[in-house]
Simulated scan of single mutants.
Amino acid sequence: MRVHVHERHDRVVRLVREHGSMTIARVAATLNVSMVTVRRDAGLLVSEGRLGRVHGSLVWPGTGRPGRALAPVGAPVREGTVVGMIVPTMHYSFSEIVQGARTVLAARGVRLVLGLTGYLAEEDGRQIERLVASGVNGLLVTPSWERGEPGAGEAEAVLAAAVPTVLVERWTSPGSAAHGLDRVRSDSAHGAGSAVRHLAALGHGRFALALQSSPHAAQLRAGFEAALSTLGLPAAHAPGFDAGALASESERYARTLEFLRRGVREHGVTAAFVHSDADAVVLVPRLQALGVRVPEDLALVVYDDEVSGLSELALTAVAPPKRAVGAVAARLLLDRLAAGPEDRGGGADGPGGTGGARRHVELLPELRVRDSCGGSATPI
């Protein structure tokens, strides 16, 4: 039976916790998966701080061989350090992002305090003020920016923060005052491009794009269109559809379903990139009921991997590295907090206008090949 990747990660962690340490080969044999899969899992789990690695073995964090402690990862932080984290919701990818940050912070003895904004733009400033007033030493912030980057005046609340701040899963244009903030995000444009390249390698030349309205939509469209251009495929072969502004979920499904059906029947579309995977789980059986077979008539790749592997027809998915985003953002902030006062800063440039060297980190999503694209499935 196919095991969901997050479930497998939890099993790896439990095995190492129970045994103290395990070789990659032993983990692979115990779980009946390939060494390549375990090495890939190990890299992610180590990057998130959930496990350590010593001489080809996975170990419980904070230990090398039994009885021998490892030095903490990263520069030391002051005892009693508290980090505030502000996200719009704990749904979608955010529970994983928060968990990634929490794991890294806990391993360094840092307390995490959470604030939720419910995608209400006015709540960004209120939550920032509340957490700073409560005494947090730094902030990890995902503002409620509808397009993923700030519109006019939307960055002011983040820029006003009087403590070091890292943007999480948000970005800014070079002309924005917020462009000087540290930030970590998944490169969703790269993910969309990898989907197009994979489908093109399978022989497809006419594509459709169906998007929800989300902070990732513009980047997904840009990556999709850039990949088509690089492959020399004309834009006319790639009708696009943004269903996000529709009044209801049922209307979004109906419009997207008709868009894809007509793409296949009237425009010769043979492949589609759909955001999100949850939408695709609803759409696939409806398409098949209309006589559009997946993947025979329409090969699908979806963005996000929340439920893709649980669909009756397992969906090929572009999976953003959610826990790694949270983990890297937490490490970046801890590095800032551990630096000298002249390098800590606040807002984009810090009180002194320098704030040390800022970093923009982009993590690449992973393409997880399953059944819906008609290609060979990747073992998971």
Rank of each mutant, 00 (worst) to 15 (best):
residue 272 A to S: 11
residue 252 R to E: 13
residue 100 G to T: 06
residue 226 A to D: 11
residue 179 H to P: 00
residue 254 A to G: 06
residue 227 A to Q: 02
residue 171 W to L: 01
residue 116 L to M: 07
residue 235 A to G: 15
residue 13 V to A: 13
residue 72 P to M: 07
residue 27 V to N: 05
residue 266 E to K: 04
residue 318 V to A: 09
residue 54 V to I: 13
residue 196 V to G: 03
residue 72 P to L: 11
residue 295 P to W: 02
residue 89 T to V: 14
residue 38 V to F: 02
residue 82 V to L: 12
residue 224 F to C: 12
residue 72 P to E: 11
residue 221 R to A: 15
residue 210 A to D: 12
residue 1 M to Y: 09
residue 71 A to H: 08
residue 300 L to V: 15
residue 250 S to P: 04
residue 270 T to C: 09
residue 80 G to F: 07
residue 139 L to R: 02
residue 67 G to D: 05
residue 189 A to W: 03
residue 91 H to P: 00
residue 74 G to R: 01
residue 289 A to G: 09
residue 173 S to E: 14
residue 115 G to E: 03
residue 165 T to R: 02
residue 87 V to G: 01
residue 259 F to G: 08
residue 56 G to L: 02
residue 342 E to V: 08
residue 261 R to V: 15
residue 61 P to A: 11
residue 285 P to H: 07
residue 351 P to K: 06
residue 216 H to W: 13
residue 32 N to A: 13
residue 366 E to M: 10
residue 93 S to E: 10
residue 337 L to I: 06
residue 274 V to N: 02
residue 51 L to T: 01
residue 357 A to H: 06
residue 119 Y to Q: 11
residue 180 G to H: 01
residue 80 G to H: 06
residue 286 R to V: 05
residue 28 A to M: 05
residue 53 R to W: 05
residue 184 V to N: 04
residue 224 F to K: 04
residue 121 A to E: 14
residue 277 D to P: 06
residue 325 V to H: 05
residue 242 D to F: 00
residue 221 R to Q: 14
residue 55 H to W: 00
residue 29 A to Q: 12
residue 20 G to A: 13
residue 109 G to V: 12
residue 175 G to L: 06
